Computed example of a mutant assay.
Amino acid sequence: MKRNIHPEYRQVVFRDRSAGLVFRTGSTLDSAVTIEFEGATYPLIDVDISSASHPFWSGRERIVDTEGRVERYNRRYGTTREGKR
């Protein structure tokens, strides 16, 4: 491995401002802002979306079918109430 070309890998704290989630993990990101977390000082990275606020992972995802595509698909390829077509 070449020396002095890789970024420093260290522990940082990520904060999801919309959900209030704060967690520590390893990263090569750097920040001038620091935070006290679990008795130590770490660089702080603010993120817009994490698993706590993302609609898919939080269970708030909604499927919007404004053009009736699901119904059209079911009419063409779907099954009837009795089973197979």
Rank of each mutant, 00 (worst) to 15 (best):
31 S>I: 06
4 N>Q: 14
20 G>L: 09
66 T>S: 09
22 V>Q: 14
26 G>F: 01
80 T>F: 13
17 R>C: 08
61 E>V: 10
2 K>T: 11
24 R>H: 06
18 S>V: 06
83 G>H: 05
43 P>N: 03
30 D>E: 13
24 R>S: 13
32 A>Q: 04
5 I>R: 10
49 I>K: 02
12 V>D: 01
22 V>A: 00
31 S>R: 04
71 E>M: 11
11 Q>I: 14
31 S>Q: 07
10 R>F: 00
49 I>F: 05
33 V>C: 03
48 D>I: 03
19 A>Y: 02
3 R>F: 14
63 I>C: 13
53 S>C: 05
2 K>R: 14
28 T>G: 10
56 F>D: 06
81 R>G: 11
66 T>R: 15
61 E>N: 12
34 T>F: 07
74 N>F: 07
85 R>W: 08
20 G>V: 05
17 R>S: 13
66 T>A: 07
51 S>Q: 08
75 R>E: 15
26 G>H: 08
16 D>V: 02
35 I>P: 02
81 R>Y: 00
78 G>V: 00
36 E>M: 04
81 R>E: 07
33 V>I: 14
17 R>A: 00
39 G>T: 01
1 M>G: 06
84 K>N: 09
62 R>L: 12
4 N>T: 03
45 I>F: 06
44 L>E: 02
32 A>I: 11
4 N>D: 11
80 T>N: 09
17 R>P: 05
63 I>T: 11
59 G>C: 12
11 Q>D: 15
69 R>P: 06
70 V>R: 11
28 T>I: 04
57 W>H: 09
30 D>G: 13
13 V>L: 02
24 R>F: 02
23 F>L: 02
14 F>L: 08
38 E>I: 03
5 I>S: 07
60 R>P: 07
69 R>Y: 15
21 L>K: 06
68 G>P: 03
36 E>G: 08
71 E>P: 12
1 M>A: 13
12 V>C: 10
21 L>Y: 00
47 V>C: 12
64 V>L: 12
58 S>L: 03
51 S>V: 15
54 H>K: 14
7 P>T: 03
29 L>E: 15
29 L>F: 07
27 S>G: 11
34 T>Q: 13
44 L>H: 01
69 R>W: 15
32 A>C: 14
75 R>L: 11
27 S>M: 02
15 R>G: 00
25 T>A: 13
76 R>Y: 13
24 R>T: 09
13 V>A: 00
69 R>K: 15
29 L>N: 13
24 R>L: 09
37 F>G: 01
81 R>P: 10
46 D>P: 01
38 E>N: 07
72 R>W: 08
79 T>L: 02
5 I>T: 11
20 G>T: 07
22 V>L: 12
79 T>M: 12
33 V>W: 04
54 H>G: 11
77 Y>P: 11
68 G>H: 06
15 R>P: 05
5 I>W: 01
23 F>I: 02
76 R>G: 13
28 T>M: 09
35 I>V: 13
70 V>C: 03
4 N>Y: 05
5 I>E: 04
75 R>I: 15
17 R>F: 04
66 T>P: 15
42 Y>G: 01
22 V>F: 06
76 R>K: 15
45 I>E: 01
77 Y>T: 14
59 G>Y: 08
13 V>C: 01
78 G>Q: 00
22 V>W: 05
73 Y>F: 12
28 T>R: 03
52 A>E: 05
56 F>V: 12
3 R>P: 10
10 R>G: 08
69 R>E: 10
